[in-house]
């Protein structure tokens, strides 16, 4: 399942695998040279992608519990919106949202903004 997709980074959209590779209400990690990306699959089958770093202390969001269109960070239970990357509730901060689309069951990420930090 470990795909090394070489030479596609210049394109806007990069295929990273099938929707079915991701557990429902779960996430997988896509490794890139600019850091890890967490790709989420919500209960309603919507796919989201965020930089895999909680704005709080950098916790791996891919390891959190996915509920609705949110994920709870495994380190300190901050709740992050999968849609906006914003922290929900009383805390503040934002995880970077990565563009994502699904074509014929394949998940594509927009990596063009990944290096801009």
């Amino acid at each position: 399942m470990n795909r090394v997709l070489q030479g596609q980074f210049a394109a806007d959209w990069v295929a990273v695998g099938a929707v079915s590779d991701i557990p429902i209400q779960g996430a997988r990690v896509v490794k890139s040279r600019h850091g890890d990306i967490a790709v989420f699959r919500a209960a309603d089958d919507t796919i989201f992608a965020l930089r895999n770093r909680c704005p709080h202390k950098g916790g791996p969001l891919s390891e959190g519990i996915v509920h609705g269109h949110s994920v709870t960070c495994p380190l300190h239970n901050w709740v992050i919106s999968l849609e906006t990357g914003a922290v929900e509730g009383p805390d503040e901060g934002c995880a970077r949202v990565i563009g994502v689309k699904v074509e014929d069951g394949t998940v594509l990420l927009d990596l063009s903004r990944l290096t801009v930090s």
Partner: peptide, 18 residues
């Protein structure tokens, strides 16, 4: 639960075009 223990993909081994 093998999916837990491997990344879905690795991208960007080459230099980015920009």
């Amino acid at each position: 639960e093998a999916h837990e223990f491997s990344p879905m993909a690795e991208v960007g081994k080459m230099e980015a075009a920009e």
